[in-house]
């Protein structure tokens, strides 16, 4: 009987398609990772395992350029993710613990605006904005643009976590003589923390990975890793680019894995028992 039940769910061919899907998703990444360890200067021929392109990234002729781009990328990503996470945590508290109010829909739309507007349109709009107010393009314009479009990415996991936290926890805290600030600091915030950490990590990755908006607002003379890679790829894919891409790829995968496990590790929020 159990087998007959299972059979209704299973469609022949779906499993091979799923495996094919995973192959499609991972093959290009794996190929680049493998070729980044290629001894050969030519990207077409495999000549044996070597770390020489990784060494080249750090000490080769282009190392200064990469180092500067990496510093820009990481410092922007950290600051933008911190700012976006703080703003998103505050906004989520206002949206989900602020009762109903006029303009709630508008507020929600505004927070999600960077997800609705195509990235290239946001890029154009931001460029026009900075140009119109005559603000010189550079590090600061990249940072500000990154903070703005990272907000919805930080907001999503924070709001999702918060939605799962019943307000009886805060009520219980206040019933036990905590004031609202203490209820937030001692109860709500610790319960939200896994969502906040996930939000920070996602915002960090999104900022680190952004190419299109950065490319529009960066101005001349400043590069982040993606814009530097894009510039280099225009001349053809070289092995050192594959090495740098592999490292960036590894950072993203490690971060997203951490985020996944942090999300799972949080204290189990009790489901309301009984008929509720």
């Amino acid at each position: 009987m159990a087998q007959a039940g299972e059979d209704i769910k299973n469609y022949p061919g779906f499993m091979p398609i799923t495996l094919f899907c995973l192959v499609v998703l991972y093959a290009p990444l794996l190929v680049v990772m493998i070729y980044s360890f290629n001894e050969s200067k030519s990207i077409t021929v495999w000549q044996g395992l070597s770390f020489k392109w990784y060494v080249d990234v750090f000490v080769g002729p282009e190392s200064a350029k990469f180092k500067e781009a990496a510093i820009n990328s990481f410092s922007i990503a950290i600051v933008a993710a911190l700012a976006a996470t703080a703003i998103a945590t505050s906004a989520a508290t206002g949206m989900l613990r602020g009762g109903s109010f006029r303009g709630r829909g508008f507020s929600f739309g505004l927070i999600n605006l960077p997800l609705i507007v195509p990235e290239i349109v946001t890029a154009v709009a931001t460029l026009i904005f900075f140009s119109a107010i005559d603000f010189e393009r550079g590090y600061l314009t990249i940072l500000v643009a990154h903070i703005a479009f990272c907000i919805p990415f930080a907001y999503m996991p924070i709001a999702a976590r918060m939605q799962g936290i019943e307000d009886t926890y805060e009520q219980a805290a206040m019933d036990l003589y905590a004031n609202k600030t203490q209820a937030f600091r001692l109860v709500l915030f610790p319960l939200m923390l896994p969502g906040i950490v996930s939000g920070f990590i996602l915002a960090f990755i999104i900022s680190l990975d952004d190419f299109i908006i950065t490319n529009f607002v960066k101005g001349a003379g400043i590069e982040t890793l993606p814009t530097a890679i894009f510039g280099a790829v225009k001349q053809g894919i070289k092995p050192n680019i594959m090495a740098i891409s592999t490292m960036l790829l590894a950072v993203s995968i490690v971060m997203v894995t951490i985020s996944y496990f942090v999300g799972k590790s949080g204290d189990k929020l009790k489901q309301p028992p009984g008929e509720k």
Binding site: A86, I87, A88, S90, A91, T93, G94, M95, L96, R97, G98, G99, S100, F101, S107, L110, I111, L113, P114, V117, T122, A125, T126, F129, V144, A145, I147, A148, F149, I151, M162, Q163, G164, I165, E166, D167, T168, E170, Q171, K180, A183, F184, P272, K276
Partner: peptide
């Protein structure tokens, strides 16, 4: 027991203000 409540309704405007400002100004 509803997850969306009004515990911090007095602080609502203050809490939402940073997101309004940043997204309003820069998007």
């Amino acid at each position: 027991g509803k997850a969306q409540t009004d515990t911090y309704k007095e602080a609502r405007t203050l809490l939402l203000l940073p997101s309004w400002l940043v997204l309003g100004f820069f998007v």
